[in-house]
Design a protein around this nucleic acid. Structure first.
Lengths: 253, 253
DNA sequence: TGGGCGAAGTAAACGCCGTTAACTCGGGAT
DNA sequence: ATCCCGAGTTAACGGCGTTTACTTCGCCCA
């Protein structure tokens, strides 16, 4: 067993080439230049051949989004120091995210700023199709893989009860409404294999997590899309300032 | 004088129709549906006729971006209470911005999250082509018009020395680098006809202004692009919480 | 009042695009 | 040796932005 016929091999290689060329076009010339015909041209084949691999251009773009998340995920994981205390890990991931976004603005836009497409973004129900595992269990959406990086770094911090000082008093009505998010987050940690004592997932902790993500994403998007009101050559320092501030508000050193 | 020939009238009307149809297509079906042929079809003319009005599709989109800024600007101005203290005005503008963005996601994306297009976004030099004014002095980019709304509400707050308490100690290296921004901001206020004593434009004030914009933009983009890590039904409350927090950090009631 | 100029609009065409349908042809299983 | 099926092809459809050459008609001036 484990025979890989030439056909399978060739198919896999071509599929990879397609995505690679598509990525290159995206980087070089922007989203609307990612054209089935252009990809095919670069690969020395004809456009309709691509339909043997993807049902449509939109599906190809979708796969590319996943690839991008995978790459980003790997890069952030690599940038994370082993043995350095959780705070430096958090900082490393945040800085890594910013750096990646600035270096790959089109990819960032494709993944993090595509206007939602209406029906997308379902809450992932219990639709695990648990077939017998061959080798690598199989191709879960890379989006989760990216989330897992953030969870891996946030988890330990939350587990050890980050905010000894409960600095941000949450508005009452928000505290109540955060219940669903607490459950979602608990599930996510469990799925990730990270132990998370129920009481560590306080409303405060969830609130803090949301603030981290909101400000990180916000500042990065602001910078990538160049939406500073007047030119800010100090964006980097501003970002660093945000990080230490956020850390302070979270009760970290 | 002041004669408007039928030609001019007709031309102006058609130009307006074009932009209106384009906006409708944008809202209804998204950016890539804003097609010269589609617009022409809806107007009962042929596509090449549009080239009498705009040199290219890209130029048309550019004009639409300006129109959108104009509308948003007007909406925010209207939403601003007269006679209510500066803080409520700030809150009203922020809430208005969020509300508008959620109600007009495609417009928001077009204006606030388009990947920069390389050569754009020059710092506006002294290239005023001050011809003799006919009627309305003429068509300054709507982007400035939008900025002016924010300046109009931020100005008074800064002028009266917002942060009596200097709460956020700015990192030294950032304080230095903020010099350019202070100059830019001073110019902007002057251009807007808002008196701004030089000493009110402290580094702290500029820093606070940047934080307001960064968080406002960030949170709104996060919500429009649906990038919350898990579903947050409480986005509205989260937004409100951010506002009061920001106000607190700025030394406002 | 008429002549002509210039602007608004059209028709036809070019080269792109995504997508479909009908085909060739060769590797792999029987 | 045979058949099958899947990767790849060619040809075609309709839609796209844009250019070119043309009609047509409102306006200005004689």
């Amino acid at each position: 067993m484990n025979e890989v016929t030439r056909r399978e091999q060739s198919r896999a290689a071509t599929e990879l080439d397609i995505r690679r060329q598509a990525r290159e076009l995206l980087v070089r010339e922007g989203q609307e230049a990612v054209t089935l015909r252009a990809i095919a041209r670069e690969l020395g084949i004809t456009a309709p051949a691509l339909y043997r691999y993807y049902a449509s251009r939109e599906e190809l773009l979708s796969r590319i989004r996943e690839d991008i998340c995978g790459d980003l995920s790997a890069e952030l994981t690599a940038a994370m120091p082993t043995e350095q205390g959780h705070l430096s890990k958090v900082f490393a991931v945040c800085r890594g995210f910013r750096w990646w976004a600035l270096a790959h603005p089109r990819e960032f836009a494709l993944v993090f700023a595509t206007p939602a497409a209406k029906g997308t973004r379902k809450r992932g129900g219990p639709e695990r199709q648990g077939g017998g595992g061959t080798a690598h269990e199989q191709e879960m959406p890379r989006r989760d893989e990216l989330g897992s990086v953030f969870l891996k770094v946030a988890g330990p911090l939350m587990a050890e009860g980050v905010a000894e000082s409960p600095p941000a008093h949450i508005p009452e009505e928000l505290r109540d409404g955060l219940g669903d998010s607490r459950r979602d987050l608990a599930e996510a940690f469990e799925a990730e294999g990270i132990d998370m004592p129920r009481e560590a997932l306080s409303a405060e902790a969830v609130y803090l997590l949301l603030r981290w993500w909101a400000r990180l994403y916000g500042q990065v998007a602001l910078e990538v899309f160049d939406q500073f009101p007047f030119d800010v050559s100090q964006a980097g320092r501003l970002f660093e300032s945000m990080l230490v501030e956020l850390a302070g508000e979270s009760g970290l050193s």
